[in-house]
């Protein structure tokens, strides 16, 4: 089958790849480009483990075709930290023990980044509804939500008790 040439920006760097038309962006990221931080938990857009940011929009990369990435800017979990400095969201997830198995964690962190980019001051309810598309089976979400609320305050320059 003929492959399609695609040119995109991934984590701030220009990326070129060939993909089959039926391949999802998630397949491309994992199997063509080799960025395996985005996970496949369902393949149907229900679990959010494959969350990436495409041109400022949070999407499930399993629901988008690789060819649709043409000309787009994509941020994956591998692009969240600044070199060897963790993003405050990543640091806060560690401090709050907001992960156990860690499989849903990349998606949750990307989704949290998208949330705070759009709404730096979410209520707990807003955070819970925003992250409702990211399933976590280990934590019961308690420490995740606490980490998100705390890092949001930090990033606004506030300190919470």
């Amino acid at each position: 089958m003929a492959k399609t040439y695609v040119s995109a920006t991934i984590n701030g760097e220009s990326a070129e790849f060939l993909c089959e038309t039926q391949q999802t962006l998630l397949d491309v990221l994992r199997d063509v480009i080799g960025l395996t931080g985005s996970k496949e938990g369902c393949g149907s857009g229900d679990c959010g483990a494959c969350s990436v940011i495409v041109d400022d929009r949070l999407v499930c990369s399993c629901l988008m075709l690789g060819v649709e990435a043409e000309g787009k800017s994509i941020t994956t979990i591998e692009g969240i930290a600044n070199g060897d400095t963790l993003h405050p969201i990543q640091q806060k997830f560690l401090e709050y023990a907001a992960l156990q198995c860690g499989f849903c964690t990349p998606g949750l962190i990307v989704a949290t980044k998208a949330l705070l980019d759009e709404n730096p001051n979410p209520t707990e309810t807003e955070a819970r509804y925003w992250l409702a598309g990211n399933l976590c089976r280990c934590t019961g979400y308690d420490k995740v939500i606490r980490a998100v609320m705390d890092v949001a305050a930090d990033m606004r320059g506030e300190t919470v008790a």
């Binding site: 960025l35 395996t36 931080g37 985005s38 996970k39 994956t76 979990i77 591998e78 969240i80 930290a81 963790l86 990543q90 997830f93 560690l94 992960l99 860690g102 499989f103 964690t105 990349p106 962190i109």
Partner: peptide, 12 residues
Amino acid sequence: DGVDKVTGRAVF
């Protein structure tokens, strides 16, 4: 194993 898991490095 925390840093590996928040940066996508952890190998499943």
